[in-house]
Amino acid sequence: MAIKGKFGRRGNQRNRRTCDDQPLDYKDVETLEKFLTAYGQIQGRRRTGYVAKCQRDLKLAIKRARFLGLMPFVG
């Protein structure tokens, strides 16, 4: 059985970040690029620190930006 840390697999949930103060928009490419890895993949919740709803919003915004050619799919 895998050993989990003090706060479990998702870490300390009390320090979660929300996107209420700054909604995620596909046109805000500079902000969205911060949540990509070096290979252009979307970072997981453990890295971004977002709550589940904001992580879904982030995913949607990045995928819209990719479709319009504002962000790369790879690299």
Partner: peptide, 9 residues
């Protein structure tokens, strides 16, 4: 006109 920019691909 929102912008004119280079495309990622």
């Amino acid at each position: 006109r929102w912008d004119e920019r280079r495309l990622a691909y």
